[in-house]
């Protein structure tokens, strides 16, 4: 099968996957007790059950789950993700307002992860067994283990409160403003740390393996400078193992963004999702989850494509 056919088939598969994600999310949200109305009236002893039902009817939250789902999916097919409860804003509006912030955070996370992981991974593999290798492995293991909300708070303590290099809150500037990009460094580090650690560890072990292979010896025997051996031949071959990680790591970064955005008061989709879950904003929760699902599926596909490009021998059956 050609790569193009493979891509088309995978793209078509997205539809049933997203359908599944929407059904699961929708039913999970409904399985958890409460809806926007119950939170609202639980706050008020003066609201009788009949008043509550009246409000629910006004907001279209009465009726069984499957009926609500059918209405919802019917709207989604026409591109209407619904309104945010308690406002007249549409869900898509909110989604696209918050999306750039999360994308920026994710990109920073990735830049940080790759920027640190590749050099240290190479270093550790080349200097395998040295003190530097051990230190970098311990740091990487800690990086992979530390919960990111805690790391975030620690960074705030060190670089905001003690060093005074940043403010807790983002500056009131558009996203592309230099001061905003500068502000993204701490949350970027926080969200990227786990990915950085994983990449570094995988890269180290796969490079260590490649370094022992015959083609490496051959390249060295040819008299190529060591730099060229490591970066041009070994690294390139080792990277394919990293690429397979990209999809899972990206999913990790997206999930991490939820917590990191709350800790850093960063107004992205993650923070919106937390608020939405808290307020039982069903439409918004489902939409953000769907969106995340779509994103992860696309990342997986992208990883497969890059894989094929990096290693032309790979073909999909």
């Amino acid at each position: 099968m050609s790569l193009r056919r493979f891509i088309v088939r995978r793209l078509l598969l997205i539809v049933p996957i997203l359908f599944g994600v929407s059904v699961i999310t929708f039913s999970l949200v409904h399985l958890t007790p409460g809806d926007p109305i119950s939170r609202m009236v639980a706050q008020n002893p003066n609201v009788a059950p009949a008043d509550e039902a009246q409000l629910r009817a006004q907001y279209g939250l009465d009726g069984p789950v499957w009926e609500q789902y059918l209405t919802w999916i019917g709207n989604v097919v026409t591109g209407d993700l619904g309104d945010v409860y308690g406002t007249n804003r549409t869900v898509s509006e909110v989604l696209f307002l918050r999306l750039p912030e999360t994308v920026a955070l994710g990109v920073f996370g990735w830049l940080f992860a790759l920027g640190i992981a590749i050099p240290t991974g190479v270093y550790a593999a080349v200097r395998k067994g040295t003190v530097g290798d051990t230190v970098s492995r311990v740091v990487a293991l800690s990086g992979a283990s530390v919960p990111n909300f805690w790391l975030g708070l620690l960074l705030i303590l060190a670089f905001v409160l003690w060093a005074g290099w940043w403010n807790v809150q983002p500056p009131r500037e558009p996203l592309y403003h230099p001061s905003m990009l500068w502000h993204l460094i701490l949350p970027g580090i926080t969200v990227g740390t786990a990915a950085c650690a994983s990449i570094m560890r995988v890269l180290r072990s796969s490079m260590a393996e490649e370094l022992n292979k015959e083609y490496t010896t051959a390249a060295r025997a040819k008299g190529l400078p060591e730099r060229q051996v490591v970066y041009k031949h070994v690294l390139r071959n080792s990277l394919s193992s990293v690429v397979t990680l990209v999809a899972t790591l990206t999913a990790g970064i997206v999930a991490g963004a939820i917590v990191v955005e709350v800790v850093f008061a960063w107004p992205g989709l993650g923070q919106e999702l937390v608020e939405a879950i808290h307020g039982h904003e069903i439409n918004l929760v489902v939409a953000i989850t769907l969106f995340t699902g779509l994103f992860v599926v696309l990342c997986n596909l992208l990883a497969d494509i890059i894989y094929a490009v990096l290693d032309p021998r790979i073909r999909y059956e």
């Binding site: 708070l153 705030i156 905001v160 409160l161 403010n167 709350v262 008061a265 923070q271 937390v274």
Partner: peptide
């Protein structure tokens, strides 16, 4: 608006 209590305290 700073939803996390610790972050708000840091601010």
């Amino acid at each position: 608006i700073i939803s996390d209590d610790s972050t708000r305290s840091a601010a």
